[in-house]
Simulated assay, not measured.
Amino acid sequence: MKLALLCVGKLSAPYLRKGAEDYSGRIRRYLPFREAELKEEKGGGKKADPRYIRDREGERILEKIPRGAFSVVLDEGGKALRSEELAGLIDRHMVQGTPELVFVIGGAYGLNDAVKKRADLVLSLSAMTFTHQMARLLLLEQIYRGLTILRNEPYHNT
């Protein structure tokens, strides 16, 4: 099985880039992993139109989710999972032979309804709100943690 992360926007802060690169490298030790950064949409004028931005970004996201992939979309209204439950999700898809597990993080204005409807799982990282850039680092850490749980490695202390 392959893992993928689709994100809107680039990581702007050096500490976020460094952390994301570190966890991406760790994930690649376990499974093939790719990341795709999609361009952030401009507001289309002086005042940003969040709906317009979400819709344009959503179109680009949907084009990048491969047919047959299981998609996990991050949204504050999604289901919260413990680290062990995320590990179980990854494990089930590895055993079932899912070709690709794709995680999706929207831009600054979130995701449109079409992307959420396409999702096989809508996931929340926390009841708190994070920037989409911070969510990326947190998600990568949790994917790595899940993989170490599956291997019964000491990174995850229960």
Rank of each mutant, 00 (worst) to 15 (best):
45 G>M: 08
63 E>V: 10
91 D>Y: 12
68 G>M: 06
112 N>T: 02
151 R>I: 01
31 L>Q: 06
8 V>L: 02
63 E>Y: 04
50 P>A: 14
2 K>W: 02
139 L>D: 08
57 E>A: 12
2 K>F: 09
146 G>C: 05
95 V>H: 01
103 F>Q: 11
126 S>G: 03
117 K>L: 04
65 I>Y: 05
23 Y>K: 07
43 G>P: 04
120 D>K: 06
7 C>Q: 05
74 L>N: 08
148 T>A: 08
110 G>R: 04
78 G>I: 03
149 I>R: 03
3 L>Q: 01
127 A>T: 13
29 R>F: 06
46 K>M: 02
44 G>M: 08
97 G>I: 06
88 G>V: 07
21 E>V: 05
85 E>A: 14
128 M>W: 12
58 G>W: 00
52 Y>T: 02
65 I>M: 09
26 R>K: 15
110 G>H: 05
6 L>M: 06
96 Q>D: 14
2 K>H: 11
38 L>K: 06
84 E>L: 11
156 H>K: 02
25 G>T: 12
134 M>Q: 12
104 V>K: 00
156 H>Q: 03
13 A>P: 00
110 G>A: 11
100 E>A: 14
3 L>Y: 01
112 N>G: 14
3 L>R: 02
5 L>R: 00
100 E>L: 11
119 A>W: 06
73 V>W: 10
118 R>F: 00
113 D>I: 06
29 R>L: 12
67 R>E: 14
52 Y>F: 13
27 I>P: 05
158 T>C: 03
145 R>W: 02
94 M>S: 13
12 S>Q: 14
68 G>K: 11
52 Y>V: 02
95 V>D: 10
133 Q>K: 10
49 D>W: 10
116 K>V: 11
140 L>C: 11
130 F>H: 01
24 S>T: 15
77 G>R: 14
101 L>G: 10
76 E>G: 12
155 Y>T: 05
102 V>D: 03
